[in-house]
Nucleic acid binder design. Structure first.
Lengths: 363, 363
DNA sequence: CTGAAAGCGCTTACAG
DNA sequence: CTGAAAGCGCTTACAG
């Protein structure tokens, strides 16, 4: 019997699983976690003394401390940080809003932000916007409502005025990968323009003139910058660009495949392709693998195994982890009150030649 | 001249950047975000009326509501969820502790957990344990102190008794990928044993008898199960296993490379390798690419571009997203009070043949 | 339809 | 060395 049904009381260690879980469940429903007040009562001390012990503050005799510790363990007390936060102001947590945690570019970036947060004693709350501006805003504001100390945002939208009340009130904010829209905020970027320009110039240097560009939706800053890099490299070489050589849009395999196949057919097919990001590159590699005539390829973003493909894939690489680390460090500088002026930080890209970008035109 | 120095007041839109930021900074220092009390004062209503409007509760005239809304916008009010949580009990957030967000296996898993959380109106807080049991415990307890409603854990350690007080008090918990140690908790796993056994049997069916196994540290449940699958397949085929054919340990490239090279040299080299996870597989692919004699390979875990390598890499695949989704759904079932008995859920694996696993022994 | 009072579980500021 | 009181910003339970 247990105490509710009036039957025999079974020691907890011997209790059948169902009973223990029912207990657990009841506990959950009534939310009866022990509080400092409970600990104080059990230890026969005041509330403030418990607080001192829990927070390792000085001014408690060894004997008192021991009694409090015993009560803490007996009750299974754990400080409620929600209450603490309410009093102290800071939550020791930061928010990260990105496009998709499952993307191999954002995983390392997120991890890097987490490591910096950890070094500052903060937890990371993250959310994926799925490239949807409304969802980005929803997430950002939910994080603000939780009173995160700061926010790292890889924006999906291009209007961030909804953040103004938060900024005014002191929420530290750093944008990464793409700049904020309509507001003045810190941003850490890769040199998307320069990287793309160099990658395309590399293809031109290897004899190509009909070069295609397949990128993400033009409203995405990185996509627009890389396209600009492509156009600049072509213009610098005095090569006029035909409309059919550029294709921007969602980067799902179907669309990219179609775009690549169109550029590669017709009377004047491209002899080389510049792929605007890792997802595009991978799909283009698949398309090229099905064709007999060699086509040169340079992709923006490095990816695992790029060196093991035949030929190895030449890429313009950016350092996702460094992007995250830099942004997070700036965020904590803001929180320390060190930074007053929003700044734009641009990290360099690097060309890695592996074969695909050095193929001559198959004319 | 601004209001602090006593000089001319410049309208905010025209204020030099530094001044606006100084203001922002001052606001942050004093933490003076508007509260419901401020809104109530400005709108000339009671606190409870503001609460009603903010939470969309009925019983407010259109006119009153409008006045409150105006005050909210004028002040840039945003409800403080920390305070709300303190009163309501639930935080509408769940925690996810995994090994490394940057690992291509965990990214999709994390994203899947996030999607389920989102469908239940909850945010996701995640942390990487870096395969360190102490760090796992630290993270889990920090999440409990924040009073997450539930916890999804990919454990690094093998003793989770530290969670007992939390479980007793009703924190919903689901383990994923590996079971909990020393406590009774829900767990969602892949069929690591069966998957590895089938993969090795596949190599045996293609004529191999000297088959190597390279896996993760044996204290990791998945590594131990996959090794058991390997041994079982070998035993089922009546093939005695030589010690030098199995190598378990950290999966960094250096160690894996050395392990592979040792198995592939000597008087009786292996003719096939079973790689215990995605990181191992990738390194083994590199080692094999440097050798002239073909060696068969089957890897546990699928990875991008496995089909484009020469030969394509045969793998045993598990569904990381499905693992995360299943775990998160079970977590919310627990929170809804539906589940009373901890359960073990095992998801199937699948063999994908692409060439590398069908190579005959090069004897 | 509206609001004053009490309380969630802590920390702060102060007094003994 | 120790503790009672006030308050963080909300919601709950209740009264008008």
């Amino acid at each position: 019997m247990d105490n509710r049904t009036g039957h025999r009381i079974v020691p907890e260690t011997a209790a059948p699983r169902g009973d223990r879980l029912a207990e657990r469940h009841a506990a959950a429903r009534y939310g009866n976690r022990p509080t400092m007040k409970d600990v104080a009562a059990r230890a026969g001390v005041g509330l403030k003394t418990v607080s001192r012990v829990v927070n390792g503050e000085p001014g408690v005799t060894a004997d008192t401390e021991r009694r409090v510790q015993e009560a803490i363990e007996a009750l299974g007390f754990r400080r409620n940080d929600s209450a603490r936060v309410l009093r102290k102001g800071r939550t020791a947590s930061i928010g990260l809003v990105l496009e998709d945690l499952a993307d191999p570019f954002y995983g390392p970036l997120s991890r890097a932000v987490e490591e910096v947060a950890r070094a500052h004693g903060a937890l990371l709350i993250n959310g994926s916007s799925a490239e949807d501006p409304d969802r980005e805003q929803e997430l950002v504001l939910a994080l603000c409502a939780r009173r995160v100390d700061g926010l790292v945002v890889i924006p999906a939208g291009d209007d961030h005025r909804y953040l103004e009340p938060e900024l005014r009130v002191g929420v530290a904010t750093v944008f990464v990968d793409r700049p904020a829209g309509q507001i003045d905020a810190d941003v850490v970027l890769s040199d998307n323009f320069g990287g793309a320009r160099d990658g395309v110039a590399h293809l031109i240097a290897h004899g190509h003139r009909r070069i295609g560009f397949i990128g993400d939706m033009p409203r995405i800053h990185t996509a627009a910058e890389r396209l600009r890099g492509y156009r600049t490299a072509m213009a610098d070489a005095g090569i006029p660009v035909t409309d059919s050589w550029t294709s921007l849009g969602v980067t799902d395999p179907q669309r990219v495949r179609r775009a690549a196949e169109e550029m590669l057919s017709g009377p004047e097919p491209v002899t080389a392709i510049f792929a605007g990001n890792n997802r595009v590159t991978v799909t283009v590699v698949r398309v090229l693998a099905e064709r007999s005539r060699p086509v040169a390829l340079v992709g923006f973003d490095d990816f695992e195994l790029a060196d093991l493909l035949q030929p190895g894939v030449t890429v313009v690489t950016q350092d996702a982890a460094q992007l995250g680390r830099t942004a997070a460090e700036r965020l904590f500088s803001q929180l320390d009150g060190a930074l007053l002026t929003p700044e734009r930080t641009e990290l360099p890209t690097r060309l890695i030649t592996r074969g695909s970008g050095e193929l001559p035109p198959a004319d």
